[in-house]
Write a protein that binds this DNA or RNA. Structure first.
Length: 576
DNA sequence: GCCGTTTTCGGCCCGACTGTTTTCAGTCG
């Protein structure tokens, strides 16, 4: 079992216990443990074998034993026993948004409902509204929730690129409204998560009601979910949920901080505040003894108050940043200005749109010191992969352009297929003639963990390979990452001096933040590349940088943050 | 069930919103 599955078991256990009316603090312990496990960088199975399970916050002796049980048997006895005591469909009912353990219990006790179908039927027959503390609106809400659930299975999250574009569009429209002074993007989008569940905005306005009306009246609104005097949420084009809050200027620092999250980061801050005698909420700090309130108009003041350094939003995940800040050890995160070149680019020689010359000119415009043209190898037939003969012509073309453009270094390269047996798609004689070799898996994706790990390690062991592209192969909405022994791959990468890629394509973002952080901890170099197929893709670099920043990556960890002299030395190629 | 810079017992993060009530329970973030 992996971490997500184990966390899910604990979450479910909490709901079941609540359904049964058990001790609320015991329930919270399960909730806390689940949350803590979800945020872990390391696999529980590894922590178990290395004897480090005691280090997980919120997981004490009892829950550790249950984790071991799950790792060994796929379940734990207490879970089996407790779920056995309630009808099986109850768990599914509690998964419906808006229905928690208490309602599920009410429906069960009063109407004998033990399945989603029965719930749906009861709602349509207006039996729900007659229950205590229920009514017409509750019944309606449940029905809509059930319908939405049916429609939206697996379509809950949106890639950051799409969400960011919509957020900026809305922000711009709202900012031009006379009733609205400023608009800020908050939530997971501000923290630059690779996918987001929705868009959260906050704004200042001296006419909140009018601001809300102009928000709900935007052109591309599909459905208004809820409105109040200071808040509204709606479904926008692209089926994305957008939420806007109007907040007071005098506490806007606290509001920005609070609504940016993450939830885990905020919980940690509140506990820290409490240990120092203050209650922290979205308005500011309250002194527990005197009741005196301190409002924060700037976000930085919240952190100053607690004696912490300012956290870039990308770090706010409670993955050790607060501890690091207390000891003054926050990383100096990589920025766009640190990037000196792009090492994964396709031209119209394979499946790209632009000529090599157009790409070179675009790179010069972006101020890059170097680029690598890395067209596909023959196995990727669908992408017009280069035969050995065409690859040699490709190298000649690059040498020719290099003579014309002397203000940028053009590396000749390849994105070379790793075949199912781990062999590369070109002979070593050919690879030797290239400045840079990226190894990549494009086929045989259904291989199991052991085979795929062996295959990739074999590629990394080839002396000519410099970088492993999109290491886990995931594509949002298309396919999950393949199962890999990342620790082994990173150990080999470190040993052999190979870099791992953060592929900046918004559909890949691979490595993700968890794996990239792991790579850094292994001391493996990272290449932040765009996998450009058309000139516009150069701009995707910002998404790759977002992932790197969420992974605590600093300029020294990044291959293409090296200047020309350094990277030539690293690749073992001449500077000119 | 977890946890400790007042604690191995007695606490456990905070607030908004909704819909139902007429002071609050449940859910969510």
């Amino acid at each position: 079992m992996d971490n997500v599955q184990i966390a899910e078991m604990f979450s479910q256990m909490a709901k079941i216990l609540e359904f049964k009316g058990e001790n609320p603090f015991k329930i919270r312990a399960y909730v806390n443990a689940a949350r803590s496990i979800k945020g872990l960088d390391e696999e529980l199975a590894l922590l178990y074998t290395s004897g480090n399970m005691g280090s997980i916050p919120g997981v004490g002796e009892t829950l550790q034993k249950k984790i071991v049980e799950m790792l060994e048997t796929g379940a734990f006895e207490a879970y089996e026993r407790t779920t056995g005591e309630i009808p099986p469909g109850i768990i599914e009912i509690m998964e419906v948004p808006g229905i928690g353990p208490k309602m599920a219990r009410l429906f069960y006790e009063k109407l004998g409902i033990i399945s989603i179908d029965q719930l749906s039927k009861a709602a349509r027959e207006h039996r729900i509204r007659r229950l205590p503390r229920m009514g017409e609106k509750q019944e309606d809400r449940i029905l809509r929730s059930l319908i939405r659930l049916q429609q939206n299975r697996d379509h809950g999250r949106h890639p950051i690129a799409l969400a960011m574009e919509i957020a900026r569009e809305i922000k711009q429209e709202l900012a031009s409204n006379p009733h609205i002074e400023s608009v800020f993007i908050v939530g997971s989008l501000r923290r630059k998560m690779d996918t987001v569940g929705g868009i959260d905005l906050i704004a200042f306005s001296n006419e909140p009601q009018k601001a809300i009306i102009s928000f709900t009246g935007l052109d591309n609104v599909i459905e208004i979910l809820q409105t109040s005097t200071t808040k509204a949420s709606l479904i926008y084009k692209g089926d994305i949920k957008v939420e806007l809050r109007i907040v007071d200027k005098e506490c806007c620092g606290s509001m920005l901080q609070y609504f940016t999250g993450s939830r885990e980061h905020n919980i940690h801050l509140r506990k820290l505040a409490l240990s120092r005698g203050y209650i922290l909420n979205e308005y500011g700090f309250t002194d527990v003894s005197s009741g005196r309130q301190t409002l924060c108009t700037k976000e930085k003041e919240v952190y100053d108050f607690l004696g912490l350094q300012y956290f870039p939003p990308e770090l706010r995940e409670d993955r050790g940043e607060i501890e690091a800040s207390l000891t003054g050890k926050l990383p100096q995160l990589i920025t766009k200005e640190d990037i000196k070149g792009d090492l994964h680019i396709h031209s119209n020689w394979s499946d790209g749109v632009n000529s090599i010359e157009e790409l070179v000119q675009a790179a010069i415009q972006r101020g890059y010191e170097y680029i690598a043209i890395t067209d596909h190898s023959p196995s990727t037939g669908i992408a017009n992969g280069l035969s050995e003969r065409r690859l040699l012509e490709h190298i000649e073309e690059i040498e020719h352009l290099q003579e014309i453009y002397d203000d940028i270094r053009i590396f000749s390269g390849t994105e070379c297929d790793v075949r199912t047996d781990g062999k590369l798609d070109y002979s070593n004689d050919i690879l030797e003639r290239l400045d840079i070799v990226i190894a990549a898996v494009h086929s045989g994706l259904e291989q199991d963990r052991a085979k795929m790990t062996r295959r990739i390690i074999a590629a990394l062991e080839n002396e000519h390979v410099d970088i492993l592209a999109h290491p886990t192969g995931r594509k949002f909405g298309r396919r999950p990452a393949y199962d890999l022994d990342m620790d082994r791959i990173m150990t080999v990468a470190k040993e052999k001096g190979k870099a791992l890629e953060i592929n900046s394509s918004p559909w890949r973002l691979d490595l993700d933040d968890i794996n990239a952080r792991k790579a850094k901890e292994h001391g493996v170099m990272i290449a932040i590349s765009t996998d450009t197929h058309t000139i516009e893709h150069f701009d995707n670099i910002s998404f790759g940088i977002d992932v790197a920043r969420r992974s605590w990556i600093e300029p020294d960890d990044v291959l293409n943050a090296m200047n020309l002299k350094e990277i030539c030395a690293c690749l073992g190629v001449p500077k000119e």
